[in-house]
Write a protein that binds this DNA or RNA. Sequence first.
DNA 1: TGGGCGCATTGACCCAGATCAAAAAACGTG
DNA 2: CACGTTTTTTGATCTGGGTCAATGCGCCCA
Lengths: 246, 246
Amino acid sequence: MSDIVFDHKECGSCPIRHRAVCARCETDELNELDSIKYYRSYEAGQPIVWSGDRMDFVASVVTGVASLSQAMEDGRTQMVGLLLPSDFLGRPGRDVAPYDVAAVSNLTLCCFRRKPFEALMTRTPHIAQRLLEMTLDELDAAREWMLILGRKTAREKIASLLAIIARRESSLALKSTGDGMMFELPLTREAMADYLGLTLETVSRQISALKREGIITLEGKRRVIIPDFDRLQIETGDDMDGGMMA
Amino acid sequence: MSDIVFDHKECGSCPIRHRAVCARCETDELNELDSIKYYRSYEAGQPIVWSGDRMDFVASVVTGVASLSQAMEDGRTQMVGLLLPSDFLGRPGRDVAPYDVAAVSNLTLCCFRRKPFEALMTRTPHIAQRLLEMTLDELDAAREWMLILGRKTAREKIASLLAIIARRESSLALKSTGDGMMFELPLTREAMADYLGLTLETVSRQISALKREGIITLEGKRRVIIPDFDRLQIETGDDMDGGMMA
DNA sequence: TGGGCGCATTGACCCAGATCAAAAAACGTG
DNA sequence: CACGTTTTTTGATCTGGGTCAATGCGCCCA
């Protein structure tokens, strides 16, 4: 789809953004990106920015998982996005964060100072184009999530989440034995509940049910094994073929 | 926020897109846009494109309301976006529709043939920029909707929908008496249910409840009067001040 | 080696909203 | 204006998932 490479491992000094850019960029631009980038690390659970905060950087996730969520002041919260390695954080052209961002697991970001990044972007059309591309992907993901939140049962929600993470995670492959797959679940039950619009008790119950029926296996608390992906896929309620997810 | 004008009334020959462009464009580009545009009308309920269809145009809504929705093959559907006059339809750089698009009310679109539109876009950076801007707005709206779908009660959902439409509709002002407002509800109960992840019965009941409590008044079946917007706003469950919506 | 703390699981009960069913408005249309 | 069609309202009942509460399971650290 794109000649841009999205794997951190392929680019020692700086990941995605750098890599995303350098596929077509001149050396000058690479140097410029290098000069405005810096790394930041966060521990699991740590907040990164709050809704309404001024954000003076954009970033890409190097390792770990971050969450975007919206909160109602009575305490109800809804996660509206999950950032895995190679995902982009921040909104070029907008300096106020519209949601809370937090580290779900230990997290490393590669940050770029916003102003010079935007300047570079305006001067380099294909970067703007790439940003549009990525934003459209996020929009697709958000809308897929609307279907999950609005119309799926608890069981389908859990199956959908597992399927989505499995697809993402296993392309950056932790292990993929035959058609079975295995991955480290990066979310607590509570985080899953926040994402799926459920309570953590319901999440736990549904996971237990899937386990009981042999659709998934847990190794310890977080390592998930999916012996037969198609079987899980059926539980999502989705159209078999129709390409979901961004 | 932007020097681009979004009111069809201000631009006789072509609406939004044209107008959006001409704020900064040269005459050549205006002429070019004119040469690739055409109008299409649809009747209420008519489908415009199905998920998976090839789309050879992008468009902006001139009059009426269109819906974007995702369907599960067992019949459950979730509306994932609502297009009101001045909203943009279509995804530059992508030629396959990711959801079903339908006319909710009688609808007029101003369409641009996709290829030349994209070509113009690549040649004219500020159009790409504007598209990114608009996509970010859609993303915000989608994520606000995730909160509504995932965490709000039926009553809060209805109140939120009415508040959102009231804000949109009354800025293009049907009437705004004092702090009260009145507008034409462009959706059937079923469409509202599809949007809110409810059943049409629940929608009807909640509307009746709001009516009974004097928070809204109906004139006929579709004309809604909101005597005190703040009162409605409270029912949404949202933070009073925090700017919602795009 | 045994608290203590942060998840996770499980159980019992309840309620908001779904489902099923029917009546009542609204709306053409011949 | 009577009549069929569509949309909306209302009622009665059922149920998936929420709520409240207890218990279990690592895991760290003393």
